[in-house]
Design a protein around this nucleic acid. Structure first.
Lengths: 336, 336
DNA sequence: CTGAAAGCGCTTACAG
DNA sequence: CTGAAAGCGCTTACAG
């Protein structure tokens, strides 16, 4: 390449990367030759010489769920627009309550930075990333001393419960209590705590038996909610900690002949891809926005060496559709 | 590292990679020192010296849809189990009818091979991959001269139509006709052609107006099917080319008061993640299986230099749930 | 503005 | 079985 252009490899390197100290004519010639030869600098040699790979690790607890796929898609686009690439890690393991650990082999000299998607890091993993000197941005579950992008899970849940209270509901059930397999994740904890706090603050009723565990899939939610919905003294509204579970509950109601929203109101959180078409009331979060924000933070650390501990909290928004309505007359509190 | 272990770098390299010609004692010492020092060979230096990166590019037309996320997840796990990593490319572009092209910058000296997920390659892209000498495995949309993993889309569609015919349906509509934005993809073509062929062969009726286009989302399918379902002379069954569209049609029916399956049968293809809980009859494909098979094929090319043009066709399976039933009595053909 | 040279951290013949 | 040396293809001071 240098030989064809009649210059040194150093000049080729400078010309192609747009550095100073190259004459316009020389640069033009180098660029033309590069074009003719389909020349692209070897990223592996560049990485070895420069110490930077222009690759970021994106680490997900699993990928097949909409929330994570949407994050990854947004991150990939943001990073690639800035000339970076995504090395993807799906840490899902065979058993539900265990994920693969982040290892040095995944990161060392392979990536310049890391974005974690709702991954509660172990102390070993934090120490590893520290030792490797890698910038890291967390989405969702925060990592101490690192920038984080998230929504306010408590506020989102409060919005959901208050929406139901505003419709006159006083007897409210909950699905999505912290299950085994996500006991280490922050979101389920926060949402349940905020639910209970809001119920108490608004003087609503939620019996112990109305709080259901679930593995956060629609399928499990349908199964796990059947017993509760069959009871004559069931609540008049259900809050699902995610839209996928809300869809499961709605389906369970349909099978039992419980009309939504006439007999039962259901609200979720997320604004899942199918929520609009299914008419599900929800508290929307901008999942792609979380991804773009996280990518932006990582790029700032990478390109500007900005090691701030910034926290970005994206807003959520109540979206009222057809799965919630006024409390059934028969269930209204008696005026005394 | 070599200094601490008291051997040459060549010996370290051989010991760590498990090559011959290293004495057991030396190997043990090297391994112990490596452990102590958290030593992991720099993949960038290894790649430069060896010419192999142990990274595969996974190229998707978009990522947020369940089908693609499931494929990526399966591929990532298979490849990582074999010591390889995944560089992910989401080719979705701003406009629906256009995707980003595969470029030399994405592949050259960056990956050892490529897996395409339902990507119809342009001749430029095929030439690029040829020029770079990269093995490639296609999922879905085949690439000439390359191994491919797919289902038999025509057979799957035939199964769906025959299921309806077996229930007595003779008036059958279709949603998922090849839309602008996927005109270059094989699957929609194959499914529609097989639908029409089976309808003719089984002497069924499908008016021109019963074949609906759609962008293959539930939302669009709900919207696009409303007019047809409102007509008094509507078909008694709808075949959706994907489960996501089937869900949209089912929702559209619900809003119109058309009962499923009493008034209208609906069948999809895929066995989407929500299909079971929603009780949707479908023709299942093993999406994760496609991903694992493709990863296996690529690894064979990478590790054993096996450049066969093998084609793997995975079976599909009718899964009867609650969205299909016998043709309504009023719509049964008159016995004459 | 340009080039010669060292160096990034490995692998791979080649000697021994 | 082990080591010295060249080479992978760049970037980066250092001279000029």
């Amino acid at each position: 390449m240098a030989r064809v252009a009649g210059v040194s490899v150093a000049t080729v390197s400078r010309a192609l990367r747009g550095l100073d100290r190259v004459s316009p004519q020389t640069r033009a010639r180098v660029l033309r030759v590069a074009e003719d030869l389909h020349y692209v600098a070897s990223p592996t040699a560049t990485s070895l010489a420069s110490g930077r790979t222009r690759v970021a690790a994106v680490v997900a607890p699993f990928l097949t769920r909409w929330f994570f796929a949407t994050l990854v898609s947004a991150i990939e686009k943001s990073l690639r627009a800035a000339g970076h690439h995504v090395l993807l890690f799906d840490l899902e393991d065979d058993s539900y309550d265990h994920r693969l650990p982040l290892s040095q082999n995944m990161l060392w000299k392979r990536v310049d930075g890391v974005i974690t998607l709702n991954i509660p890091m172990t102390s070993d993993e934090i120490e590893l990333v520290d030792r490797l000197g890698l910038p890291l941005v967390a989405i969702g579950s925060p990592v101490p001393g690192r920038p984080c992008v998230r929504i306010d899970d408590r506020a989102a849940m409060r919005t959901a419960v208050e929406h139901l209270a505003g419709l006159g509901h006083t007897r409210i059930g909950y699905i999505g209590a912290v299950p085994q397999n996500v006991a280490h994740i922050q979101t389920p904890q926060d949402r349940l705590e905020a639910f209970l706090a809001t119920v108490e603050q608004q003087h609503l009723t939620c019996d112990d038996g109305w709080i259901l565990g679930s593995d956060w899939t629609a399928e499990a939610a349908a199964r796990d909610s059947t017993a509760l919905l069959s009871r004559p003294d069931r609540p008049t509204a259900i809050v699902a900690a995610s839209d996928e579970m809300a869809i499961g509950v709605r389906e369970s109601a349909r099978r039992l002949g419980v009309r939504v929203p006439e007999d039962l109101s259901i609200i979720g959180i997320d604004d899942y891809v199918l929520s609009a078409v299914l008419g599900l009331t929800t508290v929307r979060q901008d999942v792609a926005g979380l991804g773009h924000a996280a990518a932006g933070l990582l790029l700032k650390a990478l390109l500007e060496d900005d090691r701030s501990t910034e926290e970005i909290v994206l807003p959520t928004e109540l979206v009222v559709r057809e799965s919630t309505g006024r409390v059934p007359a028969a269930a209204q509190p008696q005026l005394s």
